[in-house]
């Protein structure tokens, strides 16, 4: 997927929309900041999240960060290959390294998310 076709949260998750399904990953910018990623924990299928809630953890040699839900809904799929192939996050952050899929309760929430150009500006100004 091209980043220009994706939505972004200020907390560095990306969202791809197809109908009421949202595929979620983390941005290339976030992966670069984290450096070597050593561990990823994912939620169980069927778990429900509100925007801003922690869905899982991503751990690098530097720090442990939360993965926040960018939209409201229920987890319908997780990328089970990913925790054992964390290099995919560096190699293919927008395709093979998708993290999970959420069936959205309310697709109108997307207005809270940024487009790619807005997200890039956010990354430039964000103090991390």
């Amino acid at each position: 997927m091209k980043p220009s076709e994706l939505h972004f949260a200020k907390t560095h998750e990306w969202v791809a929309i197809e109908g009421d399904m949202a595929t979620i990953g983390i941005s290339e910018f976030a992966v670069k900041l984290l450096t070597d990623i050593v561990y990823l924990s994912l939620p169980a299928i069927g778990k429900k999240f509100s925007p801003g809630e922690s869905m899982g953890e991503i751990e690098s040699v530097k720090a442990v960060s939360e993965i926040y839900a960018p939209v409201q809904g229920e987890v319908t799929a997780i990328n089970e290959q990913l925790p054992d192939n964390l290099a995919l996050l560096n190699e293919s952050p927008y395709d093979q390294a998708w993290i999970l899929k959420i069936r959205m309760a309310d697709p109108s929430q997307l207005s809270n998310l940024l487009n790619y150009a807005e997200y890039q500006r956010h990354c430039e100004t964000a103090t991390h």
């Binding site: 751990e59 690098s60 040699v61 530097k62 720090a63 442990v64 939360e66």
Partner: peptide, 11 residues
């Protein structure tokens, strides 16, 4: 160590 409080604070 990334899970200890000097890095992860309240979490």
């Amino acid at each position: 160590q990334a899970r200890e409080q000097h890095i992860r604070r309240d979490k």
